[in-house]
């Protein structure tokens, strides 16, 4: 097979992967929000459904490098083209660049679809918490916080009875599900930038961007994520520095 013919087959394969990838995501665009509402905001069902779709999309992305290393690379090498040949590198990078583009797209899609579901959940929880809750002993109205989603004691001003407030499963899920999705949404641009710089290093097979340069967008990502979390649940303010340091140690100590 000639170089041109191999190149064309490789281009066609990449175009098909791209089309198929967007087809999978486009078809789930409407289905997942419907599922979330139909199951009355069941977060675990939503996450399980997303996991299935994510696997489909992820498998397509990995097909690019698998096909390159299993078949395409050897076909080019059989044409007496060396590993350091500019044309060979260009063809290989074509695949790696598409793989990176689709990975970034999948991450953005995941963040967006989870954030949309999270906003619906927060709205539902706030509606519930804005209702009137009365003391179990004297029926006086009790003040209930609309930005705290755990169980807590609240004392009745009239009869001094200690009431235990249970926010309910949906409100609790704001903390378990929604807060992460909203934080990821707020910080997405910094995360994508961090991944993009890492990819530039990978593509050129050397550190174009130093570890310090990688840390800058990652730090912005973590800071934005944590600040968004505080915006939704102010109680997290007290542990901001501790969480920032813990999340940064992941990249400082282990990368």
């Amino acid at each position: 097979m000639s170089f041109i013919a191999t190149q064309q087959r490789w281009d066609t394969f990449l175009a098909k992967i791209r089309d198929r990838f967007y087809e999978v995501l486009n078809k789930t665009e409407a289905a997942l929000p419907l599922l979330f509402e139909a199951t009355d905001f069941e977060t675990i069902t939503f996450q399980n459904a997303w996991q299935g779709i994510y696997s489909q999309a992820s498998d397509l992305i990995h097909k690019i490098e698998n096909t390159w290393f299993d078949k395409v690379e050897q076909t080019f090498l059989d044409l007496d083209i060396d590993y350091d040949n500019a044309q060979f590198i260009k063809e290989r990078n074509k695949g790696f660049k598409l793989q990176h583009e689709l990975q970034q797209e999948l991450k953005s899609y995941e963040v967006r679809i989870f954030a949309d579901a999270a906003k619906k959940l927060v709205s539902n929880a706030k509606d519930t918490l804005s209702k009137d809750f009365c003391c179990t002993q004297c029926q006086a109205k009790l003040p209930i916080k609309d930005n705290f989603f755990r169980s807590y004691y609240t004392t009745c001003d009239y009869c001094q009875t200690v009431n235990t407030f249970e926010p309910g499963t949906k409100a609790r899920n704001v903390e378990h599900f929604a807060i992460n999705a909203l934080g990821e949404e707020a910080a997405l641009e910094h995360y994508l930038k961090y991944e993009h710089l890492k990819f530039q290093n990978y593509l050129s097979d050397r550190d174009i961007f130093s570890k310090d340069e990688l840390i800058t967008p990652y730090r912005k990502y973590v800071e934005t994520y944590l600040k968004k979390r505080i915006e939704v649940i102010p109680d997290y303010q007290g542990r901001y520095e501790k969480d920032l340091s813990a999340k940064m140690s992941f990249i400082i100590d282990y990368s």
Binding site: K27, T45, A49, I53, Q56, T164, E166, T169
Partner: peptide
Amino acid sequence: LLDDILGNAISSTNKFDEANAGLETK
């Protein structure tokens, strides 16, 4: 395929009783 994924997610997820918002006193 999409129906299978969504159907599978619904049928294979354990369902737990949901707590409603409310107050109680010891």
